[in-house]
């Protein structure tokens, strides 16, 4: 399904869960895996001095330093590297602003999927509440990437090929169509059950008036129609699916549903239908789901690469 996988890593413990998924994906797909690391942010614009992520000290990026970092990366992921076919791993190092370099490289190599952790460190995950955001690099990559971005924030409990429950969450936006294609193709490929899920947002009042039961019922019926029209009608001969429409606060309902169905993967568009893809920061629903989800979350926002996937 994937020919080229880009695993963007800080090589810190915050990337360990993503590493497991990235190497597993590469191994199962016999794909080319790019182990991509951006040196610590330059202290003054684009210079040769970088801040070493481990020691926190400034270092000069010369051949010795590059070799040392490459060796470190290979030591950290030594066990996983053993499982890859010979010649499928390429280690890439870059200097610059991490999200720019990741996106540049993904575009250059035309990768099929980017795999990342949500934070630099585990401590970030604890304090992310007050920061109210997932990692900045993650947000920027998810917003602008042309290919799907797999965000792995917590230990993945099963390997990709053994996924049995995939949840596609939709707000019926254009970006959600791309997410659907990705979820559908993945479910077909691994033989998983596909849940088509929509949460009717009834948490907000319009002009101070909350929707009544009749209005909610109308929204639910409309959502069912759209599920049929936009997604079910496009699934040729695939019947291992289930449609669920719940009401409440979208991210809360998605998390509850995912927990209930023991989801292995959640697939979502990265922003709501109200915002143009070029202007969208990562949607708050995705952000909240990524933060708490027990399984990986795939954020898909464009059709470009999804339509090419086998």
């Amino acid at each position: 399904m994937f020919g080229k996988i880009l695993f963007a890593t800080t090589a810190s413990p915050g990337s360990n869960n993503a590493a497991k998924s990235a190497f597993d994906l590469a191994e199962r797909n016999e794909a080319r895996l790019y182990l991509f690391h951006v040196f610590g942010a330059p202290t003054r614009g684009f210079g040769h001095l970088v801040r070493d992520l481990k020691s926190g000290e400034e270092d000069l990026v010369d051949t010795d330093y590059r070799e040392w970092v490459q060796e470190e990366l290979h030591t950290i992921y030594a066990d996983q590297i053993k499982g890859l076919s010979k010649g499928t791993l390429a280690t890439q190092l870059a200097v610059g602003v991490p999200h720019t370099e990741i996106l540049r490289f993904a575009r250059q190599e035309d990768v099929d999927i980017i795999v990342m952790g949500a934070h630099n460190s585990e401590e970030d995950n604890t304090s992310s509440r007050s920061r109210a955001v997932i990692g900045n690099t993650m947000r920027k990559v998810a917003r602008a990437a042309k290919c799907p971005v797999l965000i792995v924030n917590r230990p993945c409990t099963t390997c990709w090929r053994m996924f049995s429950n995939i949840i596609f969450c939709t707000d019926f936006s254009k970006a959600a169509d791309a997410a659907f294609q990705f979820a559908y193709k993945t479910a077909k490929e691994v033989g998983a059950k596909l849940y088509l899920f929509h949460a009717c947002d009834i948490s907000n009042a319009l002009l101070g008036v909350y929707a009544g039961q009749v209005e909610i019922e109308r929204k639910l019926a409309k959502a069912r129609e759209m599920m049929q029209e936009r997604y079910i009608s496009r699934m040729e001969g695939f019947d291992n699916y289930q449609v669920e429409i719940w009401e409440g606060t979208p991210y809360v309902e998605i998390l509850k549903f995912a927990r209930d169905k023991k989801a292995d993967l959640i697939v979502m568009a990265h922003h709501t239908h109200d915002v143009h893809e070029d202007e969208a920061e990562i949607g708050s629903t995705v952000e909240q789901v990524v933060l708490r989800s027990a399984c990986p979350v795939a954020s898909v926002n464009r059709m470009d690469k999804v339509s090419e996937l086998a």
Binding site: G83, R154, P155, C156, T157, T158, A258, R259, A294
Partner: peptide, 17 residues
């Protein structure tokens, strides 16, 4: 409540990589 919002999921994949 914040901590409870994270519950779910197992500790680690037993299959390993």
């Amino acid at each position: 409540a914040w901590e409870f919002s994270f519950r779910g999921g197992t500790q680690q994949c037993s299959l390993g990589v």
